[in-house]
Simulated scan of single mutants.
Amino acid sequence: MAKRGVKVLKGDEKKEKREDMWLAQIGQRENHRYASDNSESSLLIHQLGRDISINCLLRCSRSYYGIIATLNTGFHSLIRSGELYKLRRQMGIVEHWVYFSCNLLEWEAFDPIHRRWMHMPKMQAYECFILGEIGIIAGGCDLRGNILSSAELYNSETGRWETIPRMNKARRMCSAVFMEGKFYVIGGIGVESLKTITSVEVYDLKTKTWSEIPNMYPTPNEGAGPTEEPLTAEAPPLVAVVNDVLYVADHVLKQVKKYDKEKNLWVTVGPFPERTTSMNGWGIAFRACGDQLMIIGGPRVLGAGFVEIYSWVPKEGPLEWNLVARKPSSSFVYNCAVMGC
């Protein structure tokens, strides 16, 4: 942003100045939109005016947006338009929610700040991920079972997919994370053998090129002895990034490990929550939620069980899991995503 005048603004003053500019833009857009509709039902908080009303909504927890949308047509139109989420992003207001599915086609959301559970409308159980306005998919298989090296980028602002350069190696059953502004593709099975690919591919969003980091991903089952399970039965790597630090959940040893970038090695941080179980890595989720790591799952029991959410904030010291929430449910997590907006 270009500087105007010679006054040097402090941090709070800069924030206030940005907010004033954003609110002015909001007012211009909304006044134009509602110029032809002056009915009372289209107004927000009439006594405060549209600008201040919207300013209040930006700071209100989005867990209440559904209720607010029922107040009148003005609130309903504003929240349905998605404009509030875009403005919250510009102002740096982010609330991370955990979305997960323990029953096919059924999703639940959990707000870790207000400790609220929300049942979501039924939807297709497609995997999803998000980083601000973009998402990237890489690798996988086509309908004939051919392992792919192709990659595509989705821009949620434009609603368009863009083909990006291919990876150096084709791989499936891999995982991916964003770290330090780059996209990392980790693990997976290649074309030549059923052994896990230990090199990691990194896509630089600025140069639009891929590079490889050899021997970055730890060999599965390392230190756990031989296993009779075929590698294809293993879940994709359970990885998450907090504050640009990469963590992996080793489901065999039931340990969380941290990646040391300078030494290119993994350091054991601590064990899983005692009650968390999985089937070759399937059935649990390992995610970053703001500045904390989360493990979502539960004990393996017949009939009625529980799903549990554990969290740990790495910057606060040694690994100590905190039981954030627990509710009756199937303990097998089919899919999970954390989104902040």
Results as ranks from 00 to 15, higher is better:
Glu222Gly: 01
Asn280Ala: 11
Lys208Asn: 12
Glu262His: 07
Arg300Ile: 10
Phe272Met: 04
Met294Trp: 03
Leu253Gln: 14
Ser199Cys: 13
Ala249Gln: 05
Pro299Ala: 15
His251Glu: 07
Glu212Gly: 00
Tyr203Trp: 13
Trp266Pro: 06
Tyr259Met: 04
Gly298Cys: 04
Lys206Thr: 13
Trp282Val: 01
Trp210Glu: 07
Gly297Trp: 02
Asp244Arg: 04
Lys257Ile: 05
Ser211Ile: 04
Ala224Tyr: 05
Met216Pro: 03
Leu265Gln: 14
Lys182Leu: 00
Pro299Val: 03
Ile213Asp: 03
Lys263His: 13
Ile284Glu: 01
Met279Arg: 14
Ser211Gln: 11
Ile213Trp: 05
Leu231Lys: 11
Leu302Pro: 00
Val248His: 10
Val241Cys: 08
Trp210Thr: 11
Tyr184Phe: 15
Pro236Ser: 15
Met279Asp: 14
Leu265Cys: 15
Val241Ile: 08
Gln292Ile: 01
Lys257Gly: 02
Gly190Met: 02
Thr207Tyr: 03
Glu274Val: 13
Tyr184Ser: 03
Lys261Val: 14
Val242Asp: 07
Pro226Trp: 08
Phe286Leu: 11
Val267Lys: 12
Pro220Trp: 02
Thr207Arg: 10
Leu253Tyr: 00
Tyr217Gly: 01
Ser199Phe: 00
Tyr247Ser: 05
Ile284Ala: 02
Val239Leu: 04
Leu205Asn: 11
Glu192Ser: 13
Glu212Leu: 09
Lys263Ala: 14
Pro271Trp: 07
Ala249Thr: 06
Leu293Phe: 02
Thr268Phe: 01
Val185Met: 04
Val301Asp: 02
Pro237Ile: 09
Glu229Thr: 10
Leu194Cys: 09
His251Val: 07
Val269Pro: 01
Ile295Asp: 03
Val200His: 02
Asn264Thr: 10
Ile189Phe: 13
Gly270Asn: 06
Arg287Met: 14
